[in-house]
Nucleic acid binder design. Structure first.
Lengths: 330, 330
DNA sequence: CTGAAAGCGCTTACAG
DNA sequence: CTGAAAGCGCTTACAG
């Protein structure tokens, strides 16, 4: 087993002091030639700085914490994946912190040590105010995904717009009745605000078109077990050419499956628009509102990195606009 | 903001050397009185040892890594939750490491630094041989969940037994035809061996009862989108009183939902047994084979802790026996 | 731009 | 059982 190579080995090989090596590592001022020489040795010896020594000495940790709720949704995994990949490109590590229990939340809030191990923290689709408080006093920069806060960098999707687009797509077919399949959220660690923004956009456009969407046309779905099938069944059989907005592709999938067992043709016997554009949606022919998941994850990573380098950079609020993906169901 | 308290502060307050404090922290030999005195000061000052200093100095990290595949299943979250809770009780931290990409697996295999941050690693439902190799050379103790390996502590469920029980339950109703809904796994980082063990047990009992289960009675389901509804539909409508073994409760849920739209009564028009006993199963009236998820997670934590304390303890192979939960569907 | 030195907070032989 | 000391691998003023 190869003896572990330390900063001292590099220094000796490159004929410089350890301080200089540290400076090329951390972007201090070093002459171009020595920098290159040191870099060369680092590569040759496959040197990796010991993160713990770094942290002890008060430097950067090269890590960013990614906090997200207990979601079994494709969305969060894709988000995490692109986030992690982007970070990796900059030699940063992702510390995965799922909020799966009150205990974990509590620990995060009380154990100062925990947060000290990262240079920044990203919180995705978590209702910030009810979990970390109105203005969490993290020592690290905080980046928010699907949440808006004046004091922090935020990345959001224009959900309202997406909802409006969904309505427009459905309206084209001049259906008689509209329905929405919405999440019924009870877990205080999971945000559902953005889902209601989608719904509001949807409802607004419908109203403009003269259709006053009745509240009892909302079908509430459990995040994990989906919408009650009998309700969906009822809509599909009782109404003529109904239009359905599934606020998440998950729910749209169920509708499609039920329809197939009924022999109902999407885009003809009923109309359906989802939200997300999950992997299966293409094959399933689902017309949906796509949010750029991968871009969001990558952007979060980039903003975190920028913020780490420059704590005083102006706060950045990014809003991604979802796009319409027209396929067979509407 | 309170100045951070270090081991030196404790030493001074307790009138001992830092070495002594370290010894009470790490279980070295200290007289009972001084130990108590030190402990008292630690409590009063709310001292928490800096993990990085610890690691640098070559001590324990008080962390265990939990590696699991990209599963959006209830099972893994429950497992992780109980694991984390148990560890927490011993003042240990869980390092959550989901295997969501090849990149993450590669990093785990190549970056020696990563593994050094934990005292032990637990790998859950991952095919060890195809991911880490026949005999991974981790420096840390390795504990396996749902995988068998002579050289490591393993925790398994008697899946074969569970499958047999499922068959017995179904057989009671003397159905004419049997079906199974099985996972179709393509992701090499997700183990499905245990699912086939269940199936084998199932098939075996059926054969003993004179029913030679035909392979084309297996319905393959995608882990994320579930079984194709039209197939389930077909079984429910084409056959008289069919018996279905869903190898995961997820799949059973779909069957129940489809049946409800068809007006078919479980336990009468068809028979259904699941596996897992997920949260919704009780309310859903699902008869299922329950595996003690929480116990498995807790056990994994305890074995890890034991192994950390005593690397030479004999290898432990634990096998949990699933239990039958009789409800309405069979 | 660069080297030598102090210090980050611990652990672990080493003497007593 | 216990204290003083060395060392873990870095970073960051401090002088030059």
């Amino acid at each position: 087993m190869a003896k572990k190579v330390t900063i001292r080995d590099i220094a000796q090989q490159a004929c410089v002091g350890v301080g200089t090596v540290s400076r090329v590592l951390n972007g201090g001022s070093v002459s171009k030639e020595t920098r290159e020489r040191v870099l060369k040795v680092i590569n040759e010896l496959g040197y990796r700085p010991n993160p713990h020594a770094r942290m002890l000495a008060g430097g950067k940790t090269n890590r960013v914490m990614f906090i997200f709720p207990e979601m079994r949704n494709e969305f969060h995994w894709r988000l995490l994946k692109s986030f992690d990949l982007t970070l990796d490109g900059y030699d940063y590590q992702t510390v995965v912190y799922p909020l799966i229990s009150d205990n974990r939340l509590k620990k995060l809030r009380s154990d100062k040590q925990l947060l000290k191990e990262v240079d920044a923290v990203v919180v995705a689709t978590v209702p910030l105010d009810t979990t970390f408080g109105k203005r969490p006093d993290f020592a690290q920069p905080l980046i928010l995904i699907e949440w808006v806060h004046e004091d922090y960098d935020c990345i959001n999707v224009d959900n309202e717009y997406g909802g409006r687009k969904a309505a427009e797509l459905l309206l084209e077919h001049q259906p008689n009745e509209f329905f929405a399949i919405q999440s019924y959220e009870t877990n205080p660690m999971i945000a559902d605000k953005h889902l209601w923004e989608r719904f509001n956009g949807f409802k607004k456009v419908l109203l403009e078109a003269g259709y006053d969407f009745p509240d009892d046309h909302i079908i509430y779905a459990d995040l994990f077990t989906g919408p009650p099938h009998d309700k969906v069944f009822e809509i599909l059989t009782k109404y003529d050419r109904p239009a359905i907005f599934a606020l998440t592709d998950n729910y749209a999938l169920i509708v499609l499956q039920i329809a197939s067992t009924l022999g109902k043709k999407p885009g003809k016997d009923f109309f359906l628009v989802g939200f997300d554009d999950q992997y299966w949606a293409r094959e399933g022919g689902l017309t949906t509102i796509k949010q750029p998941v991968e871009e969001i994850g990558a952007k979060a990573a980039e903003i975190a990195l920028k913020r780490i380098r420059n704590p005083d950079a102006p706060i950045e609020h990014v809003k991604f606009v979802p796009t319409v993906v027209r396929r067979l169901t509407a």
